[in-house]
Design a protein around this nucleic acid. Structure first.
Length: 441
DNA sequence: TCTGGGGTCCTAGGACCC
DNA sequence: TCTGGGGTCCTAGGACCC
């Protein structure tokens, strides 16, 4: 048996822990640049606000409905997530942390009292962290996901499902009749792995509910769609196609990209931005002990500015020697961006991606045949120590305390036009001593 | 005026090989 | 006029997830 535990409206719930005045109010958390809503409280959902809806479209609800908006505070959410995951992980022999707000638990062999365990887990997380969760149990991961959807929806929309399924729902406890009722009442688009496009195509064929999908011919669907959908159908029927993965492999790509606060036309500014992004991905690569075989850079104009001429070039540069050294990666990224950018365009976004990632230490030395001879014999140790020192300093004194020169100029100028807008960010209550909450007695 | 930032996996099609 | 068949690898793009 698997459980899926997830935090309801994670980002909003994290904010509410430290600002109880937000409870009961419509609240959204905004993306970078305060651009669009990436988390919504139930009250905000009830106002009709959609996921990723642009802020300028819903701003009027501040006055009309008391909508509160907060800028994203990922440092806070990440720390709250770690606390929640640690608590939940105690309940089962294996845990797969699937995203910042949800994890699978593998209750191998356990069949009884699961709902009770779920309620206990929920209560403990609520008491210890203040975060409300939903828990779904099922014999496969896809069914646990479905159970979680039911637990959350039954809680949020009374009448949608029987009330006893709210908050914690165990599909294995249900009679065959109840399970059929549940699947008939649930739209196929709510199934894990069935997105917008697929559900539209399924609907055309008359497959509207989860029950319709379960009763469809898996083989035919495989031909029409893909093996992914076939697996989903099998999982819905109770056949396990996926296990819990406790230690997911290192990422195969590492990306850092941002939309800018204002359009950028100057190459020099883009060089500085891309340098910053490259520094960030280099740091991430070192964290997971990987080296990159190639660097990919893209810049793009805004498809929403229809009066602008559009230009979205990208390029990839293979490295003669795979590395996670900030200097080498910044140099490659800068060379790329210099070749991409053309004058006369309003660029609004850029990004750097590391690809061809390999574990550090098992780098193929043959690739060095054509590398520059000047450093062929240089000890790599010096480099590692320099990067180690860089990471330590930045960890201790804050991001950007030490950086390569091309990335540092932006900050020296006191930010730039491209700086992201973050008008309403809350304090990093749990990770910064100088932002720790004050309690007034 | 103002529209996120990460990731994964699968498939189709082309290049290339024998 | 008639022009094989089977394989691998790589890449781009699409769909999905949160």
């Amino acid at each position: 048996m698997f459980a899926l535990v997830d935090v309801n409206n994670m980002y909003v719930s994290c904010e509410r822990v430290f600002r109880p005045s937000l409870l009961g109010r419509p609240v959204v958390v905004l993306s970078n640049n305060d651009g669009c809503a990436i988390a919504r409280s139930n009250e905000a959902k009830d106002l009709g606000i959609k996921m990723a809806q642009p802020w300028f479209q819903i701003r009027h609800l501040r006055r009309e409905a008391g909508l509160m908006a907060l800028s994203a505070n990922f440092e806070l959410y990440g720390d709250m997530s770690s606390r929640m995951m640690a608590l939940v992980g105690e309940y089962a022999p294996r845990q797969e942390i699937y995203s910042i707000d949800e994890c699978f638990l593998d209750f191998d062999g356990v069949r009884d009292h699961l709902a009770g365990i779920g309620r206990d887990m929920r209560a403990k997380v609520l008491q210890w962290t203040g975060l409300p969760t939903s828990v779904g149990f099922g014999p496969t991961k896809t069914l646990a996901k479905l159970a979680n959807h039911v637990a959350k929806t039954a809680d949020r929309k009374p009448g949608s499902y029987p009330a006893q399924w709210a908050q914690v729902c165990n599909l294995a406890e249900l009679s065959a009749l109840d399970l059929e009722l549940l699947m008939r009442a649930t739209e196929v688009g709510n199934v894990w792995g069935v997105g917008r496009k697929t559900s539209a195509r399924l609907n055309e064929q008359g497959i509207r509910s989860v029950l319709d999908l379960v009763n469809a011919d898996a083989n035919t669907l495989r031909g029409q769609f893909s093996v992914v959908l076939e697996k989903t159908v099998l999982e819905l029927r109770g056949t396990c196609c996926m296990g819990v993965d406790e230690a997911p492999a290192a990422n195969q790509q590492i990306m850092c990209s941002r939309s800018f606060g204002a359009p950028v036309t100057e190459l020099s500014v883009l060089v500085e931005l891309v340098s910053q992004f490259a520094s960030r991905v280099a740091e991430k690569a070192r964290q997971q002990r990987s080296v990159a075989g190639a660097v990919h850079v893209f810049v793009s104009t805004s498809p929403f500015r229809q009066q602008d001429r559009q230009h979205s070039p990208s390029g990839t540069l293979p490295l003669s020697r795979p590395t996670a050294d900030t200097r080498g990666l910044v140099a490659a990224a800068v060379r790329l961006v210099q070749g991409l950018v053309r004058p006369g365009f309003n660029y609004v976004k850029a990004g750097v991606m590391l690809v061809d990632l390999q574990p550090e230490g098992q780098v193929q030395q043959e690739l060095d045949l054509f590398a520059g001879m000047e450093d062929a014999g240089a000890p790599t140790r010096g480099r590692d120590q320099l990067m180690g020192a860089l990471d330590t300093l930045n960890q201790r004194f804050g991001k950007g305390a030490v950086s390569v020169a091309s990335a540092a100029r932006l900050e020296a100028r006191g930010g730039s036009v491209a700086a992201a807008r973050q008008a309403w960010r809350s304090a990093r209550y749990t990770t910064r001593l100088d932002e720790i909450p004050t309690v007034h007695a």
